[in-house]
Design a protein around this nucleic acid. Structure first.
Lengths: 236, 236
DNA sequence: TGACTTAATTATGAATTCAAAATTAAGTTG
DNA sequence: CAACTTAATTTTGAATTCATAATTAAGTCA
């Protein structure tokens, strides 16, 4: 059953905003599972808040696509569907491409050095086959490029979509082959960034997003095929 | 003072969602003015609802950037700033470019005919100097291209950003010269769409967004310069 | 009078309450 | 005992209440 990892009560500053963040984390970490009902009462107890701010947060999460509100039936964690993945990644591709273009125009040497460090650490985690660490650093690199691009609107648009795709993180594993390719793509990304080659960085980032899409869709299709065998586990 | 145009009470289905829509309309129509405080109590009375669903809607509007929540000071309609315009339009450009690419791949002849009709009506409104009608049809054309692109995520991302920029509608007028240019750009857009020339449509849409940006920024800068003269009107 | 302090009022954020809907449990009948 | 009906329980959505913060108004004194 669902159990909160950090049950401490929330500080009372901008309560609903804090709750949005907390529940985002619960969802992308699959502590609240896809398709599951959001346990309103339990969460209120865990967070030590009343239903009012929690429900405010749920409306925001619904507008972000992380939960679905069913009339008189409460909030449900949305499932990552193939259709959604095929919609979101092209958009993310266009946005990341723009972030690459802008980053090449605006990035400082210090920022490049920081990304170079992150990249090295990511390679290390690849060699160690530490997938959690890899994902975490990978995220940080994309975020660092966004920050270097210097467009806050772009950053939040990307992150909103990225969050939705992170729900697939605990569904779709990477194959060894895909992992290797992803690392190669990141080598290119770093190289074009250092060269401040905007157009090529944009193309590479767009391709990178497309590869991610194909990889996740492939996994979801496989999972869909085997699903009936474990249906009892999933439904009950 | 603020006065609701359609004061009828709201039907009780998905109340907060309906309130989000209503308040979006109030904001983009400048019935709730930029920089103004959102009159919670008044709106509750006008809409015939309690504060709970209204405040839920305000959290969603805040996440969309249409209002800003100040701790213990309530919700305030955000102002369209030059910085924001300079951030949002490049993102919109990238998204509309993608919508052009996808539309050229997926659009049907019937959809093209419908857009051709809209285009003709838009030309008519230009000749009549009917700016409201022009804006309205303009919107519809961009939306039709998005629909033809067949990517719901892209559509909602675009529309969220587009909403924010529509707040400038009642601030920034178009000059005759800019209006003429915009019409020319739309001629190109239609031509590339009919030719199903994705890359060129993408480029044109991106350029179109850039022109819009320059036009609005120019206006806002002008307005900023003259602002002190009418400061008393604005502040009081 | 005008700057400052203090009291009354109002608005805000969140908890609580309440009616209606959905779900579950308990009967009931063939 | 399985299918159906009805009653009890729980959950949901929204209104109301309540403590606290912010604002306004009233009073104070140089």
């Amino acid at each position: 059953m669902f159990q909160l990892k950090n049950p401490q009560t929330i500080a009372r500053t901008s309560l609903h905003h804090e709750l949005v963040n907390r529940m985002q984390t619960l969802i992308i970490n699959a502590e609240l599972e896809p398709g599951a009902k959001v346990p309103e009462k339990l969460l209120c107890d865990q967070f030590g808040v009343s239903r009012t701010p929690l429900r405010e947060a749920l409306k925001v999460l619904a507008s972000e696509g992380l939960v679905r509100l069913e009339p008189n039936r409460g909030a449900w964690v949305t499932r990552v569907t193939i259709e959604e993945v095929e919609e979101v990644f092209p958009v993310l591709g266009a946005l990341e491409a723009l972030s690459g273009e802008l980053a090449c125009k605006n990035i400082t040497d210090a920022e490049i050095d920081a990304i170079r460090d992150l990249h090295a650490r990511m390679l290390k985690s690849y060699e160690d086959s530490d997938l959690d660490e890899y994902f975490s650093i990978n995220q940080k690199i994309h975020r660092a490029i966004l920050v270097a691009a210097g467009n806050g609107t772009l950053t939040s648009s990307c992150e909103a979509l990225s969050l939705r795709m992170q729900r697939a993180r605990y569904l779709a594993n990477m194959t060894q082959g895909r992992w290797y390719d992803a690392v190669q793509e990141h080598e290119q990304i770093l190289a074009f960034l250092i060269a401040r080659d905007g157009p090529n960085l944009a193309l590479t980032l767009m391709g990178h997003m497309n590869s991610k899409k194909l990889s996740i869709v492939k996994w979801l299709k496989l999972e869909g095929d085997t699903k009936y065998g474990e249906a009892s586990d999933v439904i009950v």
